[in-house]
Nucleic acid binder design. Structure first.
Lengths: 195, 195
DNA sequence: GAGCATTCTTGCCATTTGGCAAGGAGGGGT
DNA sequence: ACCCCTCCTTGCCAAATGGCAAGAATGCTC
């Protein structure tokens, strides 16, 4: 379960060099998930942070009526993480679930803090994870406000077609902020356009 | 322009004690803004981070058609910050504008990094700012998906009535994800309900 | 391969929201 | 006091989306 991939990801943002990556990587623990398995369950305090090397997961919350709302899809090279629970040690409002069998590397909260306070380069890396996540979420928020659901669907399809192959339309619909019924209609129109 | 308030804010999250707050506060520079003044302009790289002690600011982006979309309101005790530009040194897509005369304290990117790498307690504080901002944005995203504009308006009114006194309805409308026309109708219904 | 459950599609109609344009209400400057 | 400008409201109709329910399609289990 290639540590190479882990070291490559650590270096990918440019703030960790090869030698550092090797040392930092030693703090991580390999982890696999089976399809449908949960990495984090609502009500639990997130104990770990998962850097995915293969597979897809999603995070979802439940609205007051109990309907699932997908808040994130995560794929290879990305970090599956419930920010609020992991960093502030508070029970999670979200569940993180494997959409496919997955492989990756985890870091516990304690290990993360050791690295965060002990290694300037990891500090930069960790901050980068948060900053990029923040920027992505803000961008999604802006799309939600300024575009129609059809546009959001087309963009998701263009940017991450793999997600559509692993997630049900209901999951995708709630991620896009529409009902599954509407998404179905949107897909019909969208597919007619390109033939 | 009370340094006391600054020190109080630094201590408010519990990760910085009184003595540390005094030392950390020395890195900040007092800053005032007049109503309408800009703290950051689209296309510039954000050079500073503003901890507000009084007054209100908003951040906004422009959609492809040039319409302003308010992305955040910030008030006393909060940090006005364009995360992406400030941390990754990239031109900002947003503008930050004072809604009222403001007082606060700024920290440059360089000063922030000195504190971040040099002081464990500030590191925790800074991470907390990001984490709380992330959680707030995610919560807003969930509200956008699971509730109607009327509910979002009522909640904003309940949580931050001061904002409504300083921002135009157009700013509030784009923040809530609706047009000013719709917000006007929503307000009509909302005000009838409570009398 | 039959049966069952889940997912996806579709039709019908209601609700929410948008777009446009006209009008009204304030506020500031001269 | 007058004018001008911006902000807010409102009426009319169109577009987008939701809710419900019935059917197709798919996949899983036994």
């Amino acid at each position: 379960m290639s540590q190479e991939k882990l070291q490559h990801f650590l270096q990918s943002t440019g703030v960790i060099n090869a030698g550092q990556a090797q040392e930092v990587a030693a703090y991580f623990t390999p982890r696999t998930l089976l399809r449908q398995e949960l990495l984090l369950r609502t009500g639990q305090i997130s104990q770990e942070y998962l850097l995915l090397t293969s597979g897809y997961v999603r995070a979802f919350a439940c609205d007051p009526e109990g309907l699932e709302v997908t808040t994130a899809f995560t794929g290879p090279g990305q970090v599956a993480l419930e920010v609020s629970s992991f960093f502030t040690r508070v029970p999670s409002l979200e569940t993180i679930q494997a959409l496919t069998d997955c492989e990756g590397w985890t870091l516990t909260h304690e290990q993360m803090n050791q690295l965060f306070h002990g290694r300037p380069e990891f500090r930069e890396f960790g901050r980068g994870v948060l900053v990029r996540g923040f920027a992505a979420l803000k961008n999604r928020m802006l799309e939600m406000i300024t575009t129609t659901a059809a546009v959001r669907y087309d963009r998701l399809l263009a940017a991450s077609p793999e997600i559509l192959q692993h997630a049900s339309l209901k999951m995708v619909a709630s991620y896009l902020g529409v009902t599954d019924t509407s998404l179905s209609r949107i897909r019909k129109v969208s597919s007619q356009k390109e033939g």
